[in-house]
Nucleic acid binder design. Structure first.
Length: 829
DNA sequence: TGTCAGCATGGTA
DNA sequence: ATACCATGCTGAC
């Protein structure tokens, strides 16, 4: 950067400084009331950007104003390094600090573009139909558009270097990720994590999937965190119109079964307010975001599918090829409520519309293979793993995540979902969503009622759940853009992809079931999202934002708009049919239009209602019943397996007698069985990092080959607290040791009883202990968020830790052992 | 006979 | 042609 930086504009801090870093570091512990800005001696009073620690830089009014106005860097960092010129307009942009980190975008050809220019180059050619997809209420306008455009280009128009977008999203990486992101593009990070290397052509080939993958894998997640917790996270508001996202949050909650009681919503919202206010208001319509399976690599991939297992667990391609119908479509509200805990980042994983089979009595939810492999723990055995999932009310469920061999592939299912689905009152056509709270690593299961698409149903839903911006009967409800925009956004995306996805989806995914049409029948297609409100004379109106100037114009509430709308189309108000005409609303009024505080208050109250409602519905007894149901299922399964095993064992014994005549062959078999059994018994406690390689190729032969009779480490690696109950010295030749009543632990039945008691005790403990998850594991663990296991290794402990921590996991450990014995017996026969 | 677990089949992308 | 996945089918209980 050759040009000298502009002079400071702040009257408070007249001396530019190079001590920003020092300022940052010293600020990590803000003990005084002094402004975060080390060059300022005023008293802090407002929140600024988000710090790596997760806190906020607390600034004095003036510094905060400078920050909000986007002049902070000019004021305080003018002599710092990192100033560059926009390749387009030449405007100086600071690219070297956390404050300005989102004020520019990196250009493919090198150099940077300020967001205004980037926006022009991207947005003006963008298909506005995309807007709903990523239009984040609290995204700075520029970023919203950029994200939209970048995404739409990539996802909808063939090969586009994805790099043009990621820079928009990586800057606000969470603390642990930021440094890495600042030095590596997400794609590189991704590749680092996956260990993959790609040539440029291969990169091109990956186009859509690649970007979506990056986009969702880490970056957007990061953004969401900032959005949720910070509101802007260092975004310099150059243009007008930012808005709190809270308006849509309520509404989204209406139709999305999310209301986590982690913390006071008002509290969390206050955080949003604190920084959202930093942005000039301009309420974008509430939209649904699409997390295209994606955003899964980048930094987060290290947390998710990579580091978690110590090595790449899933074919990145597989992850990136999630079908659009599984792309999670979360609204801000959904995300916010899921991540109600300020320390939690919600990472949308995927969603699935329930099929008749899924919602049926069988209790098996078929999981999309790619999703299962990408987001759930690796399983190498068909019986899979118990999976602990928290629902939208904070209640935890235990499902059996497993697969069936199918052709040469697998069919993944979640078993035991019936209680949960019934609890959520879901049916075929409804959608369940899976996301993950981080750093807790908890799996969170939400839902979206298909019937919310219809006004009447939506109304009912609103009434039922009892929260939201709009009250039941409110005329705006019928026009509430939340669900509709959600759906239209979904539709829009697929249309852009050149697929008649709506019909395809209906026919392919759901056949010709009635609910297929329920979901979309009332959804507007590609309509311009607007904000409905009542003006000062009590008339229903809607506010729409001009595509070109971004000014908000008031239109009659019943007006249907095309997806692209500009001031020139404002035939309802000719005086404001030009972009040159000032916006009718002041920023302040816009803020009032979406009064975050009111929303927060209301939301908090409504969230409380929802919690109360759920609690009233469930009662403590239902908790127990649910647990018992889960346990019952485990028992049943155990019983079945036991019976099978006994039968096969008897057959095997007969065979063994015969085979003993063949001494040489017999010895070989014993050796094999010994290997298998020891591997079975030691597989669970092994660190996932070890298991990861195994899970990556679920090949039983590999399991056998990995084992070794003379591998004492394998045996010693067992750390399960229940391990003591398992005779690790069991000799395969004496399989009766595992049979009921004859094993060294007093019999499988007794073990089952013991484990049942332990399980119930633990359930009681968990119930009384609130939501404490010592392992922070999303899998079946002792469950909760008590201790943060933010490091990926801990999260990566996955089901091994879970197994050892949970009695039902113990069941499965036993089951798995017996199952494998069965399998082996079958293989032998 | 009903339920369940697991596999097979066939439609769809 | 292939993989995915919804669901049908079958055997066991």
């Amino acid at each position: 950067m050759s040009s000298p930086p502009p002079p400071p504009t702040s009257t408070t801090a007249t001396t530019a400084n190079n001590n920003y870093n020092a300022s940052c570091s010293s600020s990590s512990t803000v003990l005084s009331r002094k402004c975060f800005n080390s060059d300022c001696t005023d008293v802090k009073s407002r929140k600024g950007w988000r710090l790596r620690s997760g806190d906020f830089a607390e600034l004095c009014d003036r510094c905060a104003s400078a920050y909000e106005e986007g002049s902070f860097c000019e004021a305080f960092h003018s002599r710092a390094s990192g100033w560059r010129c926009c390749e387009s307009c030449g405007k100086r942009v600071h690219c070297g600090c956390i404050v300005s980190i989102q004020a520019f975008t990196l250009l493919d050809a090198g150099g940077i573009a300020c967001l205004a220019c980037a926006r022009k180059s991207f947005v003006l050619t963008s298909n506005p139909a995309w807007s709903p997809l990523f239009y984040h209420a609290s995204f700075p306008e520029r970023l919203k558009d950029l994200s939209v455009k970048s995404w739409s280009q990539l996802a909808g128009s063939g090969p586009v270097p994805w790099r043009q977008a990621p820079s928009l999203f990586n800057p606000s990486a969470t603390p642990a990720m930021q440094s890495e992101l600042q030095t590596r593009m997400p794609y590189e990070v991704d590749r680092l994590n996956t260990g993959e290397t790609f040539s440029a052509p291969s990169l091109e080939k990956r186009k859509v999937e690649d970007f979506s993958e990056k986009f969702i894998n880490g970056n957007l997640r990061i953004r969401l965190r900032d959005i949720v917790e910070n509101g802007n996270a260092g975004i310099i508001g150059e243009e007008q119109s930012q808005t709190p996202s809270s308006l849509m949050e309520d509404a989204s909650a209406q139709q999305f079964g999310i209301s986590l009681p982690y913390k006071s919503l008002s509290e969390s919202n206050s955080q949003i307010e604190g920084s959202v206010n930093a942005l000039q208001p301009a309420p974008p319509p509430p939209f649904t975001k699409h997390f295209h399976g994606s955003l899964h690599n980048g930094v987060d991939s290290s947390v998710d599918g990579h580091i978690r297992n110590g090595k790449p667990r899933t074919d990145a391609r597989g992850r990136s090829q999630l079908l659009p119908r599984y792309w999670p479509r979360f609204t801000d509200g959904e995300l916010h409520q899921i991540s109600g805990n300020s320390n939690s980042v919600i990472k949308p994983l995927f969603e699935k519309m329930l099929s008749a089979s899924d919602a049926g009595r069988i209790g098996r939810l078929v999981l999309p293979k790619k999703c299962a492999e990408a987001y759930f723990p690796p399983i190498s055995q068909p019986e899979g793993l118990p999976l602990r999932v928290q629902d939208s009310t904070g209640k935890e469920w235990i499902f059996q995540f497993r697969f069936w061999p199918n052709n040469n592939s697998r069919m993944y299912v979640l078993e035991g979902v019936t209680p949960c689905i019934q609890n959520m009152q879901l049916q075929a056509g409804d959608t369940v969503t899976f996301s993950r709270l981080e750093p807790e690593g908890k799996l969170v299961m939400g839902f979206r009622k298909a019937t919310s698409a219809t006004p009447s149903d939506q109304d009912n839903e609103t009434s039922q759940i009892g929260n939201g911006v709009f009250t039941k009967g409110d005329a705006e409800l019928d026009h509430s853009p939340w669900s509709k925009v959600d759906k239209s956004g979904y539709i829009a995306k697929e249309v852009l992809e050149g697929k008649s996805s709506i019909r395809k989806r209906k026919s392919s995914t759901l056949g010709s079931k009635r609910f297929e049409f329920e979901e979309y029948e009332d959804a507007p297609v590609l309509g311009k999202p607007t904000i409905f409100a009542t003006d000062n004379v009590g008339q229903k109106v809607q506010w729409v934002q001009c595509e070109d100037c971004l000014k908000w114009r008031k239109l009659p509430a019943n007006t249907l708009l095309p997806s692209k709308w500009a001031c020139s189309s404002n035939t309802w108000d000719p005086e404001r049919s030009s972009c040159s005409v000032a916006q009718e609303l002041t920023a302040e009024q816009l803020e009032y239009l979406i009064p975050s505080s009111v929303v927060a208050s209301k939301r908090s109250k409504d969230a409380r209602k929802e919690i109360d409602r759920v609690e009233a519905l469930e009662g403590e007894g239902l908790d127990t019943l649910a647990n018992l149901a889960i346990l019952g299922e485990v028992k049943r399964r155990f019983k079945t397996l036991m019976m099978k095993r006994e039968k096969k064992q008897s057959e095997k014994e007969a065979e063994t007698k015969q085979s003993e005549k063949e001494a040489e062959t017999s010895n070989q078999r014993r050796s094999r069985r010994s290997l298998l059994l020891r591997n079975c018994l030691t597989m669970n406690p092994r660190p996932l990092a070890t298991q990861g390689s195994e899970s990556g190729s679920p090949n039983k032969k590999k399991t056998v080959s990995e084992g070794s009779d003379d591998d004492p480490k394998r045996m010693k690696s067992s750390t399960s607290p229940f391990k003591g109950q398992i005779d690790l010295n069991i000799q395969p030749e004496r399989e009766d040791e595992l049979s009921p009543g004859s094993d060294s632990g007093g019999g499988m039945v007794r073990m089952l009883q013991d484990a049942t008691e332990t399980y119930l005790r633990m359930q009681r403990f968990l119930s009384s202990d609130g939501d404490n998850n010592p392992s922070g594991n999303q899998m079946l663990s002792s469950g909760g968020t008590g201790e943060k296991t933010s490091d990926a290794t801990m999260r990566g402990s996955s089901h091994q830790d879970a197994d050892k921590d949970h009695p039902s996991a113990f069941f499965h450990e036993r089951i798995r052992s017996s199952y494998l014995i069965d399998k082996y017996a079958l293989n032998r026969s």
